[in-house]
Every structure is written in structure tokens, then in C-alpha cells.
Design a protein around this nucleic acid. Structure first.
Lengths: 156, 156
DNA sequence: AAATAACCGTTGTACTATACAACTGAAAGC
DNA sequence: GCTTTCAGTTGTATAGTACAACGGTTATTT
């Protein structure tokens, strides 16, 4: 299949770019409906915090290519909702380690479940193989983006 | 290859969900940097207008699952920038047909080029086959999302 | 050790994208 | 002709985001 019809790279890149944009918008809208209590980004960050217990705000900023102010506010929001706890690290008084609370874990699980259901609904007729490959592509891309010296050029 | 290690669907779906979100956010941020003059959504809409000459605002709203007010403002912005023209349709005085202007076409081409370049930079070591497959996955996903009776439930 | 730099997080400000609701004007149905 | 429906605009509100300026803290340099 690789042989005959070399699909033009540019066309593919263009599609990826545009579809992704469409996806982003829809994802946000959909997420807002599915779980109005836990906005999309908060959800993502909370999930990260849950996985990487004790991570710092700066980690989140780095990982998601977000400004620290954004993260600061997001985390503040999560704290206000009672979903995360911020504790000063004992060794370094600059940093705060982040932990999900009981409620945080609970709401996260709930959100994950319903979001998963929503996704599953649209992915139900995908083969496991396609799903795995799609997931792998996304990971590959994101890893590349995170480590590449690309356009987030912190200070140029 | 499908045989042995059935990758758990749920894990893949979860990855897809999260990475897609991260991906989308980064794409937006990157796009904003690459072409500050033509914000991401405007860009997308302009591209659509360029492709579907003479489309109406309502079409855009339907296609991108956006509220008409959003489209209205976006189009107004594009017009203010001199990138699209709005003309009343002769047969139906409610509708306005949208056309890209000279400048619109120009800026769109430029944006496409540089955005492409940005994406290419991160996708350069992907095979054309992988790109095509990735693009196809995104299309497939978005089409499913657009036609599914899922959560944009216009009035519930 | 004092001065300087680097780092972490917060806060002020501004802007984009978005939705919902209320409204205007036009067309279609009864 | 009145009412409903449709296309688009405008008012208002909210999320998410960035950048810049700041306040503490730790690390480095001299």
C-alpha cells in the first residue's frame, strides 16, 4: 500500500492541521456539556496531577506548553473546587506540590467515565488496531512537539 | 499483527482523548505564533469560505458546530480585516453570501504555507504513509463526530 | 558574605473564542 | 394578513490563554 499512490505529504499535513482545529473546538464544546463542572483544561490538568502525584505547576506548564500564569489560575480553580491540594515542598519553598483530593479523584473518575463513553460512541466501530495506531500517532506527535525546539521559543 | 497483543481499547481511547486535547491546544498556540495576524479560527473559516465560495454564515455554523453569533463575529472580523466580502443574496434577502477578497486569498495562502512549514517541522520524520493514515484517522473521527447524535444536542 | 542571577508561583491586564438570549428583518405557511 | 421560521446581529457572560510585572527563594558568582 505504500507503493503506488504516494499520498502527497502536504495534503496530509494540511488535513491534519485543519481537522485538528475542528476537533479542538468540538472537544471543548462537547466536554463542557458532558461535564460542566469540570472544564476541559482543568480536567486534563487534574488527570495529570492524579497520575503524577506531587508534580509541580511548572511541570504542568512545561508538559502542556502553557504559560505559568495559566496553570496558576487553573490550579487555583481546581483548588477552589476542592479537587486539588497545594502544599509547599519541604525542601524548596518556591515550589508547591500538587495532589488530588478525595473529591478530585472522584470527579475525575466520573468525568473520565462519561468522556470515555462519549469517545467510545464515536470510536466504537474502530478496530482495536486502528485505535492503538491512532493513539500511537498522537503520542508520537506530542512527544516530538514537546522536545522539539519549535515555536514556543521561550525567549527569542 | 492484530492477533497477539490485543491492545486494550479503553487504554487507546483514553490516550486518544488526552493526547488529542493536548495536541489541539498546542496546535492553537503554535498557530497563533506563526500567524498572529490571522487567528486560528478565522483562518479555518476563511479557508472554508475560500473553498466554498458563496457559502453562507449559517453553513459555517452548521459545519463547524458553532453558534451563529460566533460565526457572525468571526466573519465580521474577517470583513473588517478586508479578507472577506459579504453580499446580500439577490433571491433571499436574509442571507449573505461570503467571498474571499484578493487580500483574503493572499493572506490565506501565506498562512497556509507557514503553518504547513511549522507542522512539517514536527512531522518531517514521518513517512508519507503514516501522515496519510494519521490524517485519515482524524477525518474519520471528525466525520463520525459531526454525524453522530452526540452531545451538541442543539436544544435539550 | 553580599550581590546577582535564575526560578516558582501570583496577579494585573488584555484578547480570542465561545455560548445563550434577546432582537431585527425577511420569507414561508396557514 | 398573522404567525412561525429562518439569517444574521448585538448584548452579556465565561473560559482559556498570554505577557508583563512582581514577590519570595534558592543558586551562583565574585
Amino acid at each position: 500500500m505504500t507503493g503506488g499512490t504516494e499520498p502527497p505529504r502536504e495534503a496530509s499535513v494540511d488535513v491534519i492541521q485543519r481537522e485538528l482545529t475542528a476537533f479542538a473546538r468540538r472537544a471543548r464544546a462537547a466536554a463542557a456539556r458532558v461535564h460542566p463542572e469540570l472544564p476541559l483544561v482543568s480536567y486534563t490538568l487534574l488527570a495529570h496531577i492524579e497520575e503524577q502525584r506531587g508534580c509541580r505547576a511548572a511541570d504542568l506548564a512545561a508538559h502542556y506548553l502553557l504559560d505559568k500564569s495559566t496553570v496558576s489560575r487553573q490550579v487555583a480553580g481546581l483548588e477552589k473546587l476542592g479537587f486539588v491540594e497545594r502544599r509547599p515542598a519541604p525542601d524548596d519553598h518556591r515550589v508547591q506540590v500538587l495532589h488530588p483530593t478525595e473529591a478530585g479523584t472522584r470527579v475525575l473518575t466520573a468525568a473520565q467515565t462519561s468522556r470515555m463513553a462519549a469517545f467510545e460512541e464515536r470510536l466504537e466501530d474502530w478496530s482495536a488496531e486502528d485505535l492503538a495506531r491512532f493513539a500511537a500517532y498522537l503520542l508520537r506527535y506530542n512527544n516530538a512537539a514537546a522536545t522539539s525546539p519549535f515555536p514556543h521559543t521561550p525567549a527569542d
